[in-house]
Amino acid sequence: MQFFGGSEISPSPPVPTAAGNNAHMLYVFNRNGVCLLYREWNRPLKTLSPQQDHKLMFGLLFSLKSLTAKMDPTSADKGNLGVPQLPGQGCSFHSFRTNTYKLSFMESPSGIKIILVTHPRTGDLRESLKYIYNLYVEYVVKNPLYSPGNPIRFMMLQGIFPLLHIQLHSHSLVLTLK
């Protein structure tokens, strides 16, 4: 056992297996902060109500984006810290990693935010998030029964979920239903 200088922080969750279930949660928000979709695969600890949880997640991204843009050393124009940013404004972050999970984030210029919480050792998921955005376009936006701005009802998603089974590119991330 290594006590000092170890790059891995203990306790670290088990290493993902190639065919394992590495995703914890998926969130999709629209530009108004409405949680269009929330799906969890592996989340033993729940302390908040779903509404509070969604609000907290949205607030985290909102503040973090504002913070990363404020710290951007390459850009001359800076908003004030805490001042709302528009989708696409300033720089943006792709993911952050803790010792127990990794949060990957994508925002489209139309303000759709897709968040995947996965095992900390998953690789770059930007392509996967883009893929999910494409699924959103194909199966939600193009669905005539869906009215924009409302949470996605589960019935409609039966088209999407089999597709999430598909191993998302080569990132060793497999989303499974159960």
Partner: peptide
Amino acid sequence: GIRLIDEFLAKSNVSR
């Protein structure tokens, strides 16, 4: 239009 924009962004890779 409010739906089509997402398809446009997803397929065209236009960022901003």
